[in-house]
Design a binder for these strands. Structure first.
Length: 426
RNA sequence: GGAGGGGUGGCCGAGCGGUCGAAGGCGCAUGACUCGAAAUCAUGUGUGCGGUAACGUACCGUGGGUUCGAAUCCCACCCCCUCCUCCA
């Protein structure tokens, strides 16, 4: 959420930023509501002041006297008028926050300006693309042939975009989760946290999924939402809290399944594990000092990349353009992994700095010194990594001519196998 | 799910219709004392909103209601605790 005062004071900049995001918003309503809000606050404050002074008189006066009745009647009219203002004020404030809650974050100055993903900027490339003396197969063919991915039964039991992992695939998924958690907790200084997988409306609003993107989320009939990412419960862990500045930065790493309706992506990535309604992800979340947040974003991005380097999977990093940036992000890097069968890089992680956008929505603040004024923290998060897509990348990059798949070296202690083949079925 | 108890400031806890942003304690900060520390004493110590400021105003789980006036009374909801039931 943007700050009301700042938004109105720098309206031209905000409008320009929204245009870059392809987001057309009308701010005239906001300006009018803000003006009315101020009027009502002034009226309210003055009336209350008067009322409180009259209350002192009421206390002193003889309750049976005529003067008492007279004064009471006078105060009654004042009280009724005050109530009307208060009702209107509450309405105006609700309308203001309704408007503010659907305004996306302002892109950071370093974000490339552009209409869509074609304006994204490649930042780095790592690793050598694998060469094959045969035509590399897509992971779904490999997985089905090896008997470790079962899409058909996934569809039977749950529906499209649900899959059973069996044997080595299930084992590798589990190995990847443990491997990622171990690297981030032991080497990168993150604190492991296992959050609830269902969250309430306030949590979804705090990180920015609501109110705008309710149609994208799975919802229970008790008004709970299946988390689309661990970002939601983990960021909201500190909602409505006033943190001690000395604690910052706070770093969490969480494994969770993620649930996404994928509304509006019909016909996209229908085959394979790339786009599922349920997938596993290891997520990094940070709460940091505002002045450090971009430095912290670089570190977080590097922490995520480290996983791919250890798995020896070729990747590139892309800075998203203003047109491709997510709703809450001020800056976002995508990490894309090489998929030989598709002969392209595919997103496997998204690392974002939200600055104070989520912190303001969720009221997550800190105090620099014991007596200092509270300030909003900056929040960041990134996948490190999307586990299902990592499995996809391993299957495709490590495939052999005979249809078997070599297990990356760092994973072998976790997986307990060094090759997936029909013969090796555990 | 049933019965009872409870949600007040960073924490504990009093208040149960007007003098309450709220006693008292703990914690924290500053000062005094001390060679230093502990102890002790003194002073200070919430957040949002409006305002350059002085100051004003709002906030006692959340939302409604009663009243000239609500932390205090009424209603609904949420959450926590104890017992029973159930369960992993």
């Amino acid at each position: 959420m943007l700050d009301l005062k700042t938004t109105l004071n720098q309206l031209d900049d905000v409008k320009a930023a929204m245009a870059n995001r392809n987001s057309q918003l009308d701010f005239s309503g906001l300006e009018q509501l803000a003006a009315r809000r101020k009027e009502l606050i002034l009226l309210h404050d003055a009336a209350r002041f008067e009322q409180r002074q009259a209350n002192d008189e009421m206390r002193a006066i003889d309750k049976k006297s005529e003067a008492f009745t007279e004064l009471r009647n006078k105060l009654k009219t004042m009280s009724d008028r005050l109530k009307e203002w208060d009702v209107e004020l509450a309405k105006v404030e609700a309308e203001i926050s309704e408007l503010l809650l659907v305004i996306p974050n302002l892109p950071h100055a370093s974000v490339p300006v552009g209409k869509d993903e074609s304006a994204n900027e490649e930042i780095t490339r790592w690793g050598e693309l694998p060469t094959f003396d045969f035509e590399p197969k897509p992971h779904w063919e490999l997985g089905e042939a090896l008997g470790i991915l079962d899409f058909e039964r996934g569809a039977k039991v749950s529906g499209a975009r649900f899959t059973f992992l069996l044997g080595a695939a299930a084992r590798l998924e589990r190995a990847l989760i443990n491997f990622m958690l171990d690297v981030h907790t032991r080497e990168h200084g993150y604190h492991e946290i296992l959050p609830p997988f269902l969250v309430n409306r306030a949590a979804m609003t705090g990180t920015g999924q609501l109110p705008k993107f309710e149609a994208d989320a799975f919802k229970t009939d008790n008004d709970l939402f299946l988390i689309p990412t661990a970002e939601v419960p983990v960021t909201n862990y500190h909602r409505d809290e006033l943190l001690d500045g000395a604690q910052l930065p706070i770093r969490y790493v969480a494994y969770t399944p993620c649930f996404r309706l994928e509304a509006g992506s019909y016909g996209k990535d229908t085959r394979g594990l790339i786009r599922q309604h349920q997938f596993d992800k290891v997520e990094l979340v940070k709460f940091v000092l505002p002045e450090n947040s971009y430095e912290e974003l670089d570190k977080l991005l590097d922490n995520a990349c480290e996983i791919l380097r250890r798995l020896k999977l070729p990747y590139r990093v892309v800075a998203l353009s203003t047109g491709d940036l997510g709703f809450s992000a001020a800056k976002c890097f995508d990490i894309e992994v090489w998929l030989p069968a598709q002969k392209c890089y595919r997103e496997i992680s998204s690392c974002s700095n939200f600055e104070d956008f989520q912190a303001r929505r969720a009221s997550i603040r800190f105090r620099r010194e014991p007596k200092a004024k509270p300030e909003f923290v900056h929040t960041l998060n990134g996948s490190a990594l999307a586990v299902g897509r990592t499995l996809v990348a391993i299957l495709e990059n490590y495939q052999q001519a005979d249809g078997s798949v070599v297990v990356p070296e760092v994973l072998r202690p976790y997986a307990g196998i060094d090759r997936i083949s029909l013969a090796s079925r555990p």
